[in-house]
Structure formats: structure tokens, C-alpha cells
Simulated scan of single mutants.
Amino acid sequence: MNTVASFSIIVPVFNEEDNLPVLFAEIHKAVSGLGKTWEVLFVDDGSTDRSLDVIKRLAAEHPEARYVSFCCNCGQSAAFGAGFRYAKGDVVITIDADLQNDPADIPAMLREYERGFDMVIGWRARRQDTFTKRIASKIANAIRNRLSHETVKDTGCSLKVMRTELARRLPMFTGMHRFLPTLMKMEGASVSEMKVNHRPRLHGTSKYGTFSRAKTAFFDLLAIRWMQRRHVCVDVREHN
């Protein structure tokens, strides 16, 4: 069994100014009654709209809101990596800024984590995306699982709960966010999946192309396969 005393919700942000106040309000409503210490850590990924101004206002108005910012766009993996590094909670929760992930799922995912898992990942059983995007995701998941010997239903869902100390051990590289469950398992993590809500995008546009990153993702997958074969996980304990 795990006991969660504190958690950090990491939100990568790139041009999501209209969604951020709504997202923070939904997070506050979902987690403020859990009796745990929590924070929202926004990671501004070089936004060119007013996202950073909105984040600064939220941080000024709410003690639970913090932020770090990049001077240029570095990508979602870099944003997650920065979030893992600067998070204060003993558990980190990742969530998209586009409001398609539902913060109301967080309490149930924390309860699942407290059953003894090191990571809980969301599974969007009823995705609210275009047909093309859903098909592309299914193909990518199938290829990814086949080559990495995985069984994850939906590794593309950003809503995840992780033990912070394990998340900080993960190798940082562009595309890392697509393989978080596999990378966590390489560190000895136990992983659980659970169904989560998925909502249509109301404001802004998707920042990631459906097929444009397929070639890069494939080479990332080959790198992950190499890491699985060569990885050494050592649990060192000091004895006096």
C-alpha cells in the first residue's frame, strides 16, 4: 500500500491561454477536498500567445499554482522532464492543458496508486478525436507494443500518476513522453491502467501532427528497444 502525502500536477503548456483558467478551476474542484498537499506546476513551453501571462496571474492569485518557463519551444518531453525535476510532491501527475483530459479522474487514479502501484496510466476508452487521429493512434499503439513487448492500451494518454523518485530517473530525450510506462517498468515500477474520461477540444488547436512525427517516433521506438536490451537497473542499499 502507498500513502500519498503530497502530489504535483504537471501541465505542459504551449499556446493554451483560453484553457488554463478553466483547467486550474477544474483541478482545484477535483483535488482540494482530498486532504493532501498539492500543487499545479505549469511548464510553459515557449508559448507565443498570452499563456505565460495567464500562468503568472494564476500563480499570483493561488498559492497552489507554480510555474517554470522555457525561452523557446522544446517539446512535451522536455516539459515533462522539467516538471519532474521541479515538482515538490512525492507523486507527480501529468495532464494536458487542452482540457481533453478530465481532472475529475485524478482522485480515482490516486486511490488506485495507493493500492500499491508505482504508476497509474489513463486509458481513453471513448476518445473524442477525429477518426483519422483515432486510427493513427491505434496503429501507433499496436506497433509500439509489438516492438517493445508491451500491453499498454493507450500510452498516448497524458493523464498519468507516477512515483516522483522513479520519474526523475528516466532518461530524457525528445519523444520520451510516448514511452513513459515502458521506461518506468525498466526502473522496476509496477503499472496499472484504468479507464478515464476524454473530452473534445473546445479552444485552440492540436499542437502535434497525426502522421508528421511517425518517422521520428519509429526511430525513438528502436532506441527504446535497444535500451530494454541493455538497461541495468540496480537497487543499491547502504549497510552500516
Rank of each mutant, 00 (worst) to 15 (best):
A5T: 07
S8H: 07
I9R: 00
P12S: 09
F14S: 02
E16G: 01
D18Q: 14
V22F: 06
V22T: 09
L23D: 01
F24E: 02
K29Y: 06
A30E: 09
S32W: 10
G33S: 11
L34D: 05
K36F: 06
T37R: 14
T37H: 13
W38N: 03
V43A: 10
D44W: 04
G46M: 05
S51W: 05
S51N: 09
D53S: 12
R57L: 06
A60R: 14
E61A: 14
H62V: 05
P63W: 00
E64Q: 10
R66C: 02
V68L: 00
F70S: 07
F70P: 03
C71K: 11
C72D: 11
C72L: 09
N73T: 07
C74M: 12
G75L: 04
G81V: 12
F84E: 01
R85Q: 15
Y86L: 07
D90P: 00
I93R: 02
A97P: 04
A97C: 06
L99Y: 01
L99N: 04
N101K: 02
P103Y: 00
P103F: 01
D105M: 05
P107L: 06
E112H: 00
E112Y: 00
Y113V: 01
E114P: 00
G116I: 08
G116H: 09
G116W: 11
M119W: 02
G122C: 00
G122W: 03
G122P: 00
W123L: 00
W123R: 08
W123V: 01
W123Q: 05
R124N: 13
D129E: 10
D129S: 12
T132N: 01
K133C: 06
K133D: 05
R144W: 09
R144H: 12
R146S: 08
L147N: 02
E150V: 03
C157A: 13
S158K: 03
L159R: 04
V161T: 09
V161A: 05
V161H: 05
V161G: 03
M162H: 10
T164P: 01
A167T: 05
R168L: 13
T174G: 06
T174Y: 06
R178D: 05
F179D: 03
F179G: 01
L180V: 07
P181K: 08
T182V: 14
L183F: 09
L183C: 10
M184Y: 10
M184K: 08
E187I: 04
E187G: 00
A189T: 07
A189F: 10
E193H: 13
K195Q: 13
R199C: 12
R199W: 10
R201L: 14
R201E: 10
H203R: 14
H203W: 15
T205M: 03
G209M: 12
T210E: 14
T210D: 02
R213D: 15
R213W: 13
R213G: 10
A214I: 07
A214T: 14
T216Q: 12
A217Y: 12
D220H: 08
L222H: 15
L222K: 15
L222T: 15
M227V: 11
M227A: 15
R229I: 13
H231A: 08
D235M: 14
R237V: 09
E238L: 14
E238Q: 15
N240E: 15
